[in-house]
């Protein structure tokens, strides 16, 4: 780790939505750090708060009264994003933090040519000459691997295929050379072969510009491909955090075990049933007391249903898990075998 300050620090962030039914606690205390040029993968099921976390960083969640940062701070380059004015925020969104979304059709403007949209972004970021902006836009399209960029510059989003639209989104995001790219399920709507192309493109651009990336996905294959660090989220909280290889090799949280085991194994000759996680995620209108996963967890103890687990350090570099199984007292009570490593929980 470098001694420099990290580019992005999220500290104990909580975000809630006000609905007719009451307060939905979408994010309930999330912390992580991100250095320059690094990729953090946020993994979790739908509704676990991964998109809300990411959108908090660019402040694209609904503002008060419908949405509210309950507590916590987001430090980006020394500035606390939670406290910035909308005007300052717009500047950051124009130059420093860019976001790409799952569905490129709904995030591109259908009534504007792709080139104009990219150009608009570039002009907002401080380039004043239109010719200059056009030149940068075409370069960006080319960098994103779009063939004949000059022609494509004049076309509308509907003339692009799904993969090409996502490339255009990447061009739009990267044209201003941001410090941080937030990618919210960028390949979920794409075919595997296109997904492989887009992931390779993102990695290539990251290398070139030393961009930090927050990658949101539910696909364990995709995070394996791209992430340096992984945060596993469940019901609005990070339950496990660490370097990608440690998370897979020394998976420690029962939820992480669960999602890893629900993937069909390589060897299927005996056609064993898959091992799903039983039950469904909790309702975040009334999150349960204690660990939110306790109701679905085969290892749950009494304490899990009463108190939130603190973070425990486990095998690996900066690898942490929020689970009571790693408390000294739990280890004395019962011996738990980690189904991924096959070793006893220590």
């Amino acid at each position: 780790m470098s001694s420099e300050k990290p580019l992005l620090t999220v500290k104990n962030l909580a975000f809630s939505f006000q609905t007719y039914a009451g307060e939905v606690q979408a994010v309930r205390g999330v912390s992580f750090q991100l250095e320059k040029g690094e990729t953090l993968g946020i993994v979790g099921e739908s509704g676990c708060g991964k998109s809300v976390t990411a959108k908090s960083i660019v402040r694209l969640n609904p503002e008060e009264p419908s949405g509210k940062v309950k507590h916590g701070e987001i430090l980006f380059d020394g500035k606390n994003i939670v406290e910035l004015t909308e005007k300052e925020m717009q500047k950051i969104r124009a130059r420093e933090i860019r976001m790409i979304f799952q569905d490129p059709m709904t995030s591109l403007n259908p009534t504007m040519t792709v080139g104009k949209q990219i150009e608009e972004g570039i002009l907002k970021s401080g380039v004043t000459s239109k010719d200059e902006a056009k030149k940068i836009a075409i370069e960006a399209l080319e960098m994103a691997g779009i063939p004949s960029p000059e022609e494509r510059y004049r076309q509308f989003p509907h003339e692009f295929s799904g993969g090409m639209r996502q490339r255009a989104m990447i061009a739009l995001a990267m044209a201003v050379n941001p410090k941080l790219l937030i990618a919210d399920e960028p390949t979920t709507a794409l075919d595997v072969t296109t997904q492989a192309q887009i992931l390779n493109l993102i990695k290539k651009i990251q290398k070139q510009y030393d961009t930090a990336i927050v990658m949101i996905t539910h696909d364990l294959g995709v995070v394996s491909n791209i992430a340096d660090k992984i945060a596993v989220m469940y019901a609005g909280k990070v339950v496990e955090y660490g370097e990608a290889e440690d998370i897979f090799e020394y998976a420690s949280h029962p939820y992480t075990w669960g999602i890893m085991q629900s993937i069909p194994p390589e060897d299927i000759s005996n056609k064993e049933p898959l091992k799903p996680i039983l039950g469904t995620p909790p309702d975040l209108l009334n999150p349960p007391k204690g660990c939110a996963f306790a109701a679905r967890c085969p290892y749950a103890m009494k304490v899990c249903r009463c108190y939130d687990a603190p973070g425990f350090g486990v095998e690996g570099n900066e690898h942490k898990v929020w689970c009571w199984l790693y408390d000294e007292r739990a280890k004395q009570m019962q011996a738990t075998v980690n189904p991924i490593t096959g070793q006893e929980v220590r």
Binding site: G163, V192, G221, V223, E245, F248, I263
Partner: peptide
């Protein structure tokens, strides 16, 4: 070969055949 393997050690080192172009 386009399917990412859910294991960073394998995934980051394996050989990939990237299909050129579009359907």
């Amino acid at each position: 070969s386009a399917i990412p393997v859910p294991n960073p050690k394998v995934e980051k080192t394996r050989h990939q055949i990237e299909l050129k172009g579009e359907l």
